[in-house]
Every structure is written in structure tokens, then in C-alpha cells.
Design a protein around this nucleic acid. Sequence first.
DNA 1: TTGAAAGCGCTAACAT
DNA 2: ATGTTAGCGCTTTCAA
Lengths: 337, 337
Amino acid sequence: MMQSGQGAPTLEMVAARAGVSRATVSRVVNGSPKVTAEVVAAVQDAIAALDYVPNRAARSLASRRTQVIALVVPESTARVFSDPFFASVVQGVALELAQTDYTLNLLIASETNPEKTRRYLLGGNVDGALVVSHHSGDHSYTQLGQELPIVFGGRPMGADVVDSTYVDVDNVAGARTATRCLVDAGRTHIATIAGRQDMPGGVDRLVGWRAELAAAGLRDDLVEVGDFSPGDGAEAMRRLLARGVPIDGLFAANDQMAAGAYTAIRDAGLTIPGDIAVVGYDDDLYGETAAPPLTTIAQSPVELGAEMARILVRRLSDDPFDRVTIMPTRLVSRSSV
Amino acid sequence: MMQSGQGAPTLEMVAARAGVSRATVSRVVNGSPKVTAEVVAAVQDAIAALDYVPNRAARSLASRRTQVIALVVPESTARVFSDPFFASVVQGVALELAQTDYTLNLLIASETNPEKTRRYLLGGNVDGALVVSHHSGDHSYTQLGQELPIVFGGRPMGADVVDSTYVDVDNVAGARTATRCLVDAGRTHIATIAGRQDMPGGVDRLVGWRAELAAAGLRDDLVEVGDFSPGDGAEAMRRLLARGVPIDGLFAANDQMAAGAYTAIRDAGLTIPGDIAVVGYDDDLYGETAAPPLTTIAQSPVELGAEMARILVRRLSDDPFDRVTIMPTRLVSRSSV
DNA sequence: TTGAAAGCGCTAACAT
DNA sequence: ATGTTAGCGCTTTCAA
């Protein structure tokens, strides 16, 4: 219920009601250890009675901390926002931050004007930032890491990046698992629809595919690249099929492209998994009801987002944190292999 | 480049350098009309030279405006975050707000503790809020509209809601169009997989389907309800098929459920559109590469989000704005009909 | 352990 | 058109 006196109740009002000074109320609010239990109780009663909520601006102005964490999504990634992977990362971040005192500032960074974002981040508007998916070109952000606490989602690309803090999924291992699944099924002509090679995920999944084929002594030249969308997946599959080389297995760098590949395979009069066994990556909602249900690699993007947030918060509190965190993946076996 | 003097440059430093008072600098920064052109120029030079960025907290504390807009996503909706529709709305909001001076505060509202969100919103932390998808139970938010400028995405449910400002898509018209498409194709036993009836979109799409069938003089009892996920769509379709009633047309309340229905239809040994013609809703990425490509209703969720943001900004500026905005839909004809 | 007092950087009357 | 003067609500030395 809103207080009768117009405007929100202030710390001063709480102090008056509890019969203590403003400084003491501030201490209680901020969980200072050196306050008597009785005083704490009295202040908390007053806070509850008045329905007091600290004013963020005032607190921030005085403490020189904002309690705001920016989640930066480069614009080109945002187009891919309909990619459940990114949406889930955002969700994970939001859920985790909701448990803390930090506020989430979602920022779509214009790539035509990176300077604007840079200034904003450095302008004292946020205490730290979370950056998801950045191409190799995004040096502006990787560099920013020296001046502002940043946690990246996915391994930052670029040789100059040394001390970045990031959380990544084990894309190489995931891709190897996916490919091994195909090899174990007896497939010998295994193609891949790789993701964009300017993204770490795109690169690593291709590396994993190659590594596993090498281990199995199979050819690794059946590669086409797509932009992670179903449409591009279909295109890539058509090109693969058009090569005239026999193909009996396919690893798609994400489920959306696998869905596109399904179409192209079927259009070519081939069956799944009869003629071509398929493994995707991401375990999005559609794979389960695809025909046939898609075998895929699951990683938990929600957890990834949450972990990024946790690490940044820890870092901002000067608690120990890991510079590099690798999240595991697991194979979800369905019937496309 | 960061200034040499530690900490960010302040308005006072700008004032000193430009040889004017702080008030004047403030006026220039805020675009007040009553400042001489020369003074404006001098101040802007100083600002540029110092690379000055106003301190948000100080500004907010003094002006009693936060320049923050909250985007509230109820938690149950967030689970559905992988639904491209919501993700796109968020994207639209973020993109639009990036063009303004407002900052986006993404809030996942815990439904087990709505009071927390309520307090936050009313605690003077934001200037206004955007609320997407709220069930009929979310009275906490619809009520909030009296105390804080709010723009809803989707029509708020509940009879007590009178003066809410909202942006909605014309779900009824969209559903009628979808259904008419089936009728025009000569289908006479048209079923629907409706969405959850505690969401406006779920209700309205069912209403549109009914209306169009009534207009065509066809039966309207072939209804099953799903939760908008592919899995539930498949379940619902199975139940429909199990009724033993002939069905030759299907309108699914979203593409995800249509995808599920595809599976169930195929599993039953039936063909699309031969035996059953299907129309979905949302035009998400998957429909295009489905087999057969899905005929669906497109609305632009990105535009919806952008429009919500625009309206709220206008309202916060005391510019005229529409309480009710209905976004159009359009039929995307592919080959599932 | 608690209180007093001095700002944090900015805006907004009010004066001039 | 510009300057002066108070704060906005909180944190944080410094004393007590």
C-alpha cells in the first residue's frame, strides 16, 4: 500500500520512525555487521511499516555504484534473436539477476555506431557487462574488458584477447559427440552444415566434426556453411547433395539448419535416417516433433546465461571467480540416426 | 578517451571550461530553447573536448525522472521465451528504445512473488513499464496501470480493466482469415488446436475461427486446446484424430503447435494438404522449411514491440497517444492448404 | 555501536 | 538569456 504522504517514503522517515539516525538505517539496509540486533529489528519494522524501498538513483549517486548490469547483444545477433539459443541465454541472465540486487539493462548494440555503446558502457551507467555472441570483428567489446568488468558468453575471438573472462559451451566436444554418433551408426560419408565461421560456435563445431572424422579415418571435405537459419540449412543441404558424392550422414551446426536439411533431403527423394542419418545441435523445441524426431546435442543456454551473470556478480563483489568456464553438453538420442 | 583527472568529467568541469554556469550547461545538455547560439556552441565544444557524459544517477535524483523503462515478462511467459514471438517483441522494444534516451530494464516477474515486482515498479525505479503477455490472473499488473504509465502488449484480460493502454494484434481477424482460407479451399470439417484460454491471443484466435465457421455454416465443435508448444500441438492433434470424426482442415493457434500437428497427422498415415489442410499462426522461421511449407498468418512481433515502446515514450513526454492500437495481420500462403 | 555532517552530480525555481 | 541557490535521497568518513 502506498504511504499517505505523497511520494515514496525516504530513509529519513524510516529513521524517524525507528528512532535512530539515517546512517544507522543505511547500515541496516546494506547489511552492515556492526549494528545491534535490537536496532536492526526496530529498523526493519519501520521499513516494513512504511513499505520503504531505497531510491536507486540516490544510492547510486552516493555510493558511486550503479547496481546495473548491461546485457549487450550485438545487433546482428539480435536479428537472430528468434534463435531460441540467444533468447534462452537472455532468460537465464534475467532470472539469475532477479535474485540479486542488480538490475538488467538490455542493450542492442548498433554495429554501425559501436562508439555509442562504448561510451554508454564507459560512461558510468553500469557496473559491469555481459556480452553475448560477438564476431571476430567486435574488438570494441573485447578491448572494453580492460576498462569495465565484462563476462563474455562464448569464447571471444581474436588473438589479442588474453585475459577475457568467459563462459563457453564445449562446442568442440559436443560436435565430436554428434559426429561419433554418426560414425558409430556405421556411416562413412559424413557431411556437415557448418555455422558462420566468424562466430566461435561456428568454428568450434566444425573443428569437432573434423577431429572426430580424423579419428575415424574418414573424409572431411563434405562441408557447406550456413547462417544458422532453417532456410540457409536447406540451401546448404541442396549444395551438398548437388555435389554428386554419396552422403549417408549429416551433422548440422544447429537444429534450425537441420530442419532445413530435412526438407532438402526429403525433396531429393531420400529418407532419414535410411539414406542419411542426421544429428543437429542445440536441442530446440522443434526437434522433438520433427519427422523423424531429431537426434541432437543439448546444452543449456539458460544455465549458460545464469552462469555468466553469477560470475559477473561474484567478480563485482570481489569474490573469487573463474576466468574460463566450460559448460558440458549431452547427446539427446532420438530417431534421426 | 578517458580524461586525465580521475573519474568522469562533471558538468561543473564543462561549465568552467566553457566559462558559463552549471545551470547553463544543464540547459544546453537538455536542449532548452533559451540559450544563445554562441553559448550553445561553446558548451558543446567543452563537452566534446572533455568527452563529458551526464551522470544518470545525479540527473535522475534531481529531476525525479529515471529515464528507465521496464519491460516486464511474467515468468510463465518467460518459459515460453523460446517462443519466437516473445523474443521478437523484446527485440522490437530494445531496438526502438535504443533510439531514445530511455534505458531498457528487462524484468522477469516471479509469479510466486508478484509483490516484489510491484514494489520495484512503484518504488520510483522506472518511469513507465511495458508488460507483455499476462494471463487473466495478472491483476496485479493491470491494476498497476492506474499508478504507473504502462503499455500492455496484447489486450489485458479481465472485466475490471477499462482504461488500459495496449497494443494488440488483430487476432480475431487473423484467425478468420486463416479459417476462410481453409473454407475457400473447400474444406468442410475444420478443426482447431486453440491456445491456452487464459491468454487473450488464445481466446481471440478461437473466437475468430468460430466466427468464420459460423459465417460459412460449418460445424465448430472440433476444438482441442494446447499450450502453444510443438509437443502439446501433437497431443492435441492426436486427440482430434481419435474422435473418429472426419477432419479435412486444421487451424492451429500458432506455428509451433502446427508443427506438432504435422507429426501427429503423418503418424496417422494422413497427408498434408491431401487429407488435411493446415494453417498456422505467427509465421515463425520453421514454417517455411516445413514439409509441406506451412501456410500461416504473419504479424510482426518486432513491430508490435517497437510500437509499444513508441507509445509509452510518447505518453511519458505528454505527447498525444492512442490507448488502443491494433496491428494488422496478413496471410502467408504456402503449400499446406 | 551510533550519530553528525559533508557531499555524490545534477536540475529547477527564483533572481537578475 | 544567464547565474544563484537549494536541494534530490543516500553513503560515508569522522567523532563520540
